[in-house]
Amino acid sequence: MVEGQPQARRPVLTSPAATVRRARGLRKELSPAELRLWLALRQRPGGLKFRKQHPAGVFALDFFCAAAKLCVEVDGETHDPGDQPAFDHERDRWLRLHEIETLRVTAKYVFRNLDAVVTLIVETARPRLPLHHDAARRGTPPRPGEVQEEV
């Protein structure tokens, strides 16, 4: 990176067409716990915008906040048996390589205490949010009484 130039942004994750189609289908077939959490997340708690069943690479993320690079997964009983834990581990590793953190909550917890789940999500996302502006591009804000020149 050259001093004084803005840092290059990473490209947005792309997904194969099959993953996009699968994610679109999953949006219509949310589990009861996912639906309950979605109804809370679509209210933008903490000012955060979430997407449901968001395609990322070959994966469909239950809920994704792009600003915080946070994936929220609702794990039901289907995440315990067989090779599912190994699949989940590999998926979490791949997401970490793309600077996306995964927060897993159980379906039981969503039903028992939805408010606590939403609070946990907001508290996990908040420190991951970017600064209010890119200082390298726009410089420091003007002092009171000064006028900032357009670049």
Rank of each mutant, 00 (worst) to 15 (best):
M1N: 02
M1V: 14
V2E: 14
E3L: 15
G4M: 14
Q7K: 13
R10H: 00
P11Q: 13
P11G: 02
V12S: 03
L13F: 05
L13V: 15
L13A: 08
T14N: 02
S15Y: 00
P16H: 08
P16N: 07
A17I: 07
A17P: 06
T19G: 06
R22I: 02
R22L: 10
R22F: 00
G25R: 07
L26D: 06
R27K: 12
R27V: 03
R27F: 09
K28M: 11
L30I: 01
S31E: 02
P32I: 15
A33K: 00
E34L: 09
E34G: 06
L35V: 01
L35R: 13
R36V: 11
A40R: 10
L41A: 13
R42Q: 13
Q43S: 08
Q43M: 13
R44Q: 04
P45M: 06
P45K: 06
P45S: 07
G46E: 02
G47A: 03
K49E: 09
F50L: 14
Q53V: 05
H54E: 09
H54F: 15
H54T: 13
P55L: 10
G57R: 00
V58Y: 00
V58S: 06
F59C: 06
A60D: 04
L61E: 02
D62S: 09
F64V: 11
A66H: 08
A66Q: 07
A67E: 11
A67G: 04
C71T: 12
V72P: 04
E73M: 15
E73F: 07
E73K: 08
V74G: 04
V74C: 08
V74L: 06
P81C: 10
G82Q: 05
G82K: 04
Q84C: 01
P85G: 12
A86Y: 00
A86F: 00
F87H: 01
D88A: 04
H89K: 08
R91G: 09
D92Y: 01
W94V: 09
W94Q: 05
R96A: 13
L97K: 11
H98C: 10
H98E: 11
I100Q: 08
T106K: 00
T106M: 05
A107C: 01
A107V: 06
A107T: 07
K108N: 08
Y109F: 13
R112D: 15
L114E: 10
V117T: 12
V118K: 05
I121P: 00
E123Y: 05
T124R: 12
R128N: 02
L129C: 08
L131H: 06
L131Y: 05
H133I: 10
D134I: 07
A135T: 11
A136R: 09
R137C: 03
R138E: 14
P141W: 07
P141Y: 12
P142E: 09
P142M: 03
R143E: 13
R143D: 03
G145T: 09
E146A: 04
Q148M: 01
E150M: 15
E150C: 12
